[in-house]
Write a protein that binds this DNA or RNA. Structure first.
Lengths: 109, 109
DNA sequence: CCCAGTACCTTGTTATGCAAGGTACTGGCT
DNA sequence: AGCCAGTACCTTGCATAACAAGGTACTGGG
């Protein structure tokens, strides 16, 4: 609960920020987000994190989903950012920069 | 719950990292930590965050407290890092660097 | 004499990462 | 035919931590 705790806690909110950014670049479906995030060192995540997150984002009106068939498996639910999602992403970018720089300053001494 | 949510969630764990770093530089008492952290843009925090955090750190053996009199008010509980605390701080530094760089990469496109 | 400041603490609410489990379809191996 | 791994969606329950709000106790100034 300690060795893993730090990563777990910091990821709170950071994951949401990352997902919004990825959806801003191009649309993704949930399973794809899990795989791409897990490939990044330090952001290992799971379906139990991403699917509820996507539901929250949809309920908040930040993303909109669209079912689409796949030739190689079950249908996929693609998500893209809404205008409100873009606005929120801008907000998060500012807050992330603030916090990141604050931490770097406090910690580098 | 959205405008403030991001900051709140990202701070989870980040605050612990900051406190450990500050205690590594020199000993601090709780009220002092609240004031110094609140002076930093983006890390605004409160006693309801810091005191429980210090208790957790003490129970985990990462910090050790020491009461000391003050000439200008109630006695203060000064905390300093234990050797185990220093070890944990090194760990957190590595994890923070990983996550910070991962987020910066994912987000800057 | 009260009120603001310093300094400690706790309780309850809320949010969210994650493990674990469930459904359903496809394709390959034996 | 039978089975298992992979793809893709989802939910429930647990543990954790930030924060608001409230409580205690001492000090010094108006």
């Amino acid at each position: 609960m300690n060795a893993n705790g730090f990563g777990t806690q910091v990821k709170r909110g950071v994951i949401e920020f990352c997902v919004l950014s990825m959806l801003n670049r191009r649309e993704h479906y949930g399973f794809e987000l899990v795989q791409e995030l897990s490939r990044v060192d330090g952001l290992l995540t799971s379906e139990g994190t991403i699917y509820p997150l996507l539901s929250r984002l949809r309920r908040a009106g930040l993303v909109s989903p669209e079912w689409r068939e796949s030739t190689s498996g079950p249908p996929r639910k693609y998500y893209r950012l809404t205008p409100e999602g873009e606005h929120t992403l801008d907000d998060y970018r500012r807050q992330w920069t603030l916090i990141r720089d604050a931490v770097n300053t406090l910690v580098s001494e």
